[in-house]
Amino acid sequence: MKTPAHIAVTGAAGQISYALLFRLIAGDLLGDDQPIVLHLLEIPEAIAGLDGVKMELIDCAAPLLHDVVVSDDPYVAFENADLAFLIGAKPRGPGMERRDLLRVNADIFAVQGRALNASAKRTVKTLVVGNPANTNALIAQHNAPELPPENFSAMTRLDYNRAKSQVAMHCRCPVSEIKRVIIWGNHSTTQYPDLHHALVRGKPALDKLEWDWYEKDFIPTVQNRGAVVIQTRGKSSAASAANAALDHMRDWLFGTPAGDWTSMTILSDGSYGVTPGLMFSYPVKTENARYQIVQNLEINEFSRNRLQITEAELLAEREAVRHLLR
């Protein structure tokens, strides 16, 4: 029998985590022969609810689930973690600006970064889902100086999945026929969903799509999809976000398909003229649990302008939390 993998999940009593945890114990991430130990973190006020989730997990009698650790202490929850899903974050309240949300969540991710640094395995791979995800990931990474910076990422996979699905519906073809979509920048309404290099059934996507649809329908639809889900459903995306987190981590660990890439928010190395040190979503290929930015893509003026808009937002966010960046 394989040694159990230790998976930490924060905000573990929340909607996204509830949609994620049962898929983890079913083997949807690591396979049906990899036992796991779940480490679940919540704030003290939510521990009672999390104990109920633990009961449900146990009641599944899942062969892969070896143990469930519940804690309100990140230093305990992250002990020996191989993988960490940082999902928990304070949601935006009525009248709250993005900068207010950033301030509230910044301290949470600074503490969690320090706890990962102290307790997790040196090889832990950390995916930040809680918003503002890019800058939260930057804060966590800076507060974990003993962990490799390349092992921190934030999620734009939900945006990527949304973009692929929109193209597939418009072209009336399966999602599997859509390749090389890119999400650049921030997981916010400034993100840039780029189809200039995308393929539909092996042919350039923009040869099959109307420019007006691309610019005036597709781009704003992907940028604002989260808000529309909230307006329609009355709650934020949960199952689709959990699915995207699994997709992101699976590709990171096991590799992207041949002839395709994905989008991940990673620490910028200056590629495509983006300021080094920002957490920025790039097109990447992965192999052997390592990612590599796809290089030498042509960036026209239309795209460059949009990259600069989303970069500017991330620079402003970084400035707002500079006191937490070690």
Rank of each mutant, 00 (worst) to 15 (best):
A12E: 04
A13Y: 12
Q15E: 14
D28A: 12
I36Y: 05
L41I: 07
I43H: 04
E45Q: 15
A46M: 09
M55S: 12
E56S: 15
L65V: 05
E79S: 12
N80F: 03
N80G: 04
I87N: 15
R98D: 13
D100V: 01
R103I: 01
R103L: 04
D107K: 11
N117Y: 06
S119P: 05
V129T: 13
A133L: 03
T135C: 07
A140M: 09
N143L: 08
K164G: 08
C171Y: 00
R172V: 02
K179S: 14
I182M: 02
W184Y: 06
G185H: 03
H187L: 08
T190M: 09
Y192N: 02
A198W: 07
L199Y: 04
L206G: 00
L209E: 10
K216H: 13
K216M: 07
G226P: 01
I230A: 12
T232Y: 04
A245Q: 09
L246Y: 07
W252I: 03
P257T: 12
L267Q: 11
T275Y: 04
F280Y: 13
S281Q: 02
Y291N: 05
I293H: 03
Q295F: 00
N296L: 00
E301F: 02
Q308I: 12
A316S: 15
E317M: 10
A320L: 07
